Amino acid sequence: MRSHEDALDAVAGCLAEAQRVLFITGAGISADSGLPTYRGIGGLYHERLTEDGLSIEQALSGQMMAARPALTWKYLAEIEASCRGARPNVAHDIIAALERERGGVWVLTQNVDGFHRLAGSRNLIEIHGNLHRLRCTECPHARSLPDFEGMQIPPACPVCGGVMRPDVVLFGEALPTGAVQRLEALVMHGLDLVVSIGTTSVFPYIAGPVVHAWRMGVPTVEINPGDTEVSAIVTHRLRMRAAEALPELWRRMRPCEPAEG
């Protein structure tokens, strides 16, 4: 059986050689920033109903946003407050640095925290949207906010007075067409390496690029402490947290660089 050190060396070698890389990230990459991990909102409501007697999936559904926006916003604001003040961590930073080195590095993320964008990633597909980007449900007005502190709930559009909502995919809603098309075009154009980080890969569109790469003979990597839907097919597995693995890989890709003092 290959040692942990050998696996790190092998993955670092793949990263050093690949020009077109897709990083697929889930809640696990933001866990080291202090964010909870249950469907992007941690265990806030895990295995219990909200105080309104609803599951969190019901409260945060597109249907509920349309019918009772104040209720959906109540829980959106609670979730945002629990994550306020968190920042991108070293794993986000290293992925952004790799993109600056070679333009063919892309990120597909399920996370709505915006950390990849804050870290500097620009080749970014936020497949579930961004919690801090708001759009009006009645007119084209949109805006971005650093946090929800002091915000009226539900917020009203300053242009038409309609209800604003986060530009995220709520339960029961379809994925954004533009994001899906960008992902499909990226995969069809060809990749040298696919790296899955901190996601259980239960959604077909998250596991899909890994499965496609496996079928095409393209190397794949999984960075996750636990077992996932793609663990059995990836080329290399690192049972590590993202903030542990990425700095170690970065160091091995640059063995001649002096250590920072």
Rank of each mutant, 00 (worst) to 15 (best):
E260H: 04
E248A: 14
I41L: 14
L134K: 07
E78A: 14
V21T: 13
Q19H: 08
S30G: 05
G40K: 10
S55C: 08
G150M: 12
I125C: 12
V202E: 11
V90Y: 11
G120N: 15
G150R: 10
V159W: 03
R133L: 09
A7D: 07
G114R: 07
G42A: 01
M151G: 02
I29L: 15
D32N: 03
G162L: 06
M216D: 15
G198D: 06
H132G: 14
M151H: 03
E101A: 10
H128S: 09
I153P: 10
C136F: 12
E244M: 05
E17W: 07
L44K: 14
L49I: 06
E5R: 07
A16V: 02
I56S: 11
V180M: 14
Q63P: 02
E5M: 05
C14H: 13
L35P: 01
R84S: 13
T137S: 15
P146R: 04
C160M: 13
T37W: 15
R2N: 05
A77L: 13
L170A: 07
A77Y: 12
M151A: 07
H141Q: 00
L134C: 02
T109Y: 00
V210D: 11
A259Y: 07
T235G: 15
P69Y: 14
A66G: 04
P225W: 04
L71E: 06
D6T: 08
P204F: 13
P225K: 02
C83E: 14
A232L: 02
T50I: 10
L249E: 07
E51M: 06
L191W: 06
M216C: 15
R2L: 13
P140L: 07
H132T: 00
R122A: 10
A10M: 03
W250Y: 06
H132W: 06
T200Q: 04
L44E: 12
T235L: 08
N89K: 08
T72P: 04
R2D: 08
E257M: 12
I223F: 04
G43T: 02
D147E: 11
P204T: 08
R239D: 11
L131D: 00
T199A: 11
R239F: 10
L44H: 09
R182A: 12
I24P: 09
R215L: 12
L22Y: 02
P146V: 01
A86M: 13
N123E: 13
S61W: 10
L246I: 09
V195H: 10
E229M: 14
T72M: 10
M151P: 05
H236S: 05
M253C: 09
G161I: 00
I24H: 08
A259V: 08
M65R: 01
D6K: 04
I197D: 04
L246F: 00
G53V: 05
D167M: 09
L22N: 05
L54C: 03
A10F: 01
H141M: 03
A232Y: 15
I206R: 01
E57V: 03
N130M: 01
S121M: 09
A70N: 11
P247S: 09
Y75S: 02
